[in-house]
């Protein structure tokens, strides 16, 4: 088993040009085993290009990329087996069913026979796709399609997962589901790199947030890590039975500590706190004021805060 501090993915002085445009400019970044790194930044900042470089579908103009100490050009197929890449747009065959898509990408990664069957079954269960396995991807809603898009990247159990804007275009519920899936992947020991411009959203699941602008990392570090300090973060996603009155929320906000983040979108509620005790206190305040939950889910994880 690999140690938590082991560098799994390493971009070393990577530069990419699109014609005269410099998409990525001398970027060095390391991702450790089991770490979730969020690449954030405005559109065109080079996030997707950095992921494409690691996925091996974009040619480097300078620098190198390693995964487990291996470069793509030395053995492309062995390298490809180490990576699961989910592109921003749906990289699926819409005419094929969910299961057929997963089987295809499993086969292309060298799985066959019972191993292919087991992996596909595992992914279907993990992403709750079982009931939709025989449904054509083209007939799925945006949220389900995106789940399949992510699932297809994971069917061969890669140690490194690259997710390009996995939550873009999703409604709140689908987004929450996908973030829970990502949390589970981290629990399984996957190293995950997320590209997104929705910083608030991914901060809940990311260990480290790295900002990019004009193809550069905003906080370059000598060892490839952002200067950071880790802390425990607990999150609760809840589905409410009915929308509570505004004055109730105002009242609860006054009673809970300032570092507890309370968000309400429609009937979805999100609570985020530094400790389970603080979160429990906030939840108790909500329940005391008569806020009734249909269902809720709690996730605890480590979050990296940048020194700035």
């Amino acid at each position: 088993m690999r140690g938590q501090d082991e560098a799994v993915l390493f971009w070393d002085g990577v530069s990419v040009f699109y014609g005269a445009c410099r998409a990525v400019d001398n970027v060095s970044l390391t991702v450790r085993a089991g770490e979730v790194v969020a690449l954030t930044g405005p559109n065109g900042s080079g996030k997707s290009t950095l992921l494409r470089v690691a996925a091996g579908v974009c040619q480097l103009d300078a620098g190198r990329v390693w995964i487990h100490g291996r470069e793509r050009k030395s053995d492309p197929r062995a390298y490809a087996r180490q990576v699961g890449w989910s592109p921003q747009q749906s990289g699926l065959y819409e005419e094929l069913t969910v299961e057929e898509n997963l089987r295809l990408f499993g086969r292309l990664q060298g799985l066959y026979g019972s191993r292919l069957h087991q992996n596909v079954q595992r992914i279907l269960d993990q992403f709750g796709l079982g009931p939709r396995r025989r449904q054509r991807v083209g007939t799925l809603s945006g949220g389900w399609k995106q789940r399949v898009n992510v699932a297809a990247a994971l069917v061969h159990s890669p140690p490194v997962v690259l997710l390009d804007e996995p939550t873009s275009g999703l409604d709140g519920e689908s987004r929450d589901r996908l973030l829970v899936d990502i949390s589970r992947l981290r629990e399984q020991g996957c190293s995950i790199v997320l590209a997104t411009h929705q910083t608030e959203e991914v901060a809940a699941v990311a260990d480290r947030v790295v900002q990019m602008h004009n193809g550069r990392l905003l906080e370059p570090c000598t060892d490839g890590f952002s200067a950071s300090a880790s802390r425990q973060r607990v999150m609760l996603w809840g589905q409410l039975r009915c929308h509570p009155p505004r004055f109730v929320l105002r009242l609860v906000r006054q009673r809970i500590p300032d570092d507890v983040n309370l968000e309400l979108i429609g009937k979805r509620l999100r609570l985020c706190a530094d400790s389970p005790e603080t979160l429990g206190h906030a939840l108790a305040e909500l329940l005391r004021e008569g806020v009734a939950f249909e269902s809720y889910r709690m996730v605890a994880h480590r979050v990296t805060r940048r020194a700035s």
Partner: peptide, 13 residues
């Protein structure tokens, strides 16, 4: 012309 092509190329096809 779609993302699926890049996915195929990513698996080193």
């Amino acid at each position: 012309r779609g993302a699926v092509w890049w996915r195929l190329r990513a698996v080193a096809a």
